[in-house]
Nucleic acid binder design. Structure first.
Lengths: 73, 73
DNA sequence: AATAATTTGTCCGTATGTATA
DNA sequence: TTATACATACGGACAAATTAT
């Protein structure tokens, strides 16, 4: 389902939450999808995808190469 | 002549227009020039050249192998 | 046919400008 | 004014495909 543009929660936070959910549920077999794939799936810009990645990285939930690291979850 | 960096029209749109002009005037005998050639001619990055190609493709003016197709011009 | 060089496709890192809530 | 979001533009890296030798 698409992100909620009417929600006051920023899109990049919504995306961050979606990614965390899917990681927890093992939806992503190998890595988290590429920026391009997430852009296409959620109809958002690359910048916004990158903001979500930045947030995940800051929280230690995402490694440099975007393995599905479950650090401190 | 070089593209106009002071123009608010994006470089990739300016390039797209240049290519369309040259196609119309038969300047390109065989194919549209390679990415590298356009980079060197207009002093722009490869990404920008590719954006121009993407725009031309979206508008149905450029085929996969960049033949000078005059579709709907 | 086989190899080398070029071209293209894809992805990522970074920076800047604009618009808007 | 700041935070959010998007568009534009640069660059680099690498693999795959194409072309030249």
């Amino acid at each position: 389902m698409p992100l909620d543009y009417t929600n006051s929660v920023p899109l990049y936070i919504q995306l961050k939450d979606r990614i965390e959910e899917k990681v927890l549920h093992g939806t992503y077999t190998g890595k988290v999808p590429s920026e391009r794939e997430l852009m296409d799936e959620y109809y958002i810009s690359r910048s916004t995808v990158r903001q979500a990645f930045d947030a995940l990285t800051r929280e230690g939930r995402l490694s440099k190469n975007r393995e599905k690291e479950l650090l401190s979850l």
